[in-house]
Amino acid sequence: PGLLEPTSSLVRVAKSASTLGIAIEGGANTRQPIPRIVTIQRGGSAHNCGQLKVGQVILEVNGATMRGREHRDAARLIAEAFKTKERDYVDFLVTDFN
């Protein structure tokens, strides 16, 4: 995973707050075909992690690709990754290249 994305990086976000605290836009069949981070809320898990940035494109979540997923499907997948008690973190593969 990620081998074809030379500028990608894996970011592990610990569930350190009750919310993930990111806003995303985009998804299949929109102008932004892969979801992009548009906001990082102060005090959320993503902000606490310190490694996610506004403008980054989310390629994978816990190893699952975002390619071909419509916005609601991508958002649901991220929400479920944060909600599940199986892991106390969410892994994001992100790239600065849009």
């Binding site: 919310t19 993930l20 605290g21 990111i22 806003a23 995303i24 836009e25 985009g26 998804g27 069949n29 929109t30 102008r31 932004q32 075909p33 548009v38 906001t39 809320q41 916005h71 609601r72 958002a75 991220i78 929400a79 944060f82």
Partner: peptide, 15 residues
């Protein structure tokens, strides 16, 4: 001639 984007903008979801 300039090519126009026909794809719609996306919703934004807060997670």
């Amino acid at each position: 001639r300039e090519k126009r984007l026909t794809l719609p903008p996306s919703e934004i979801t807060l997670l």
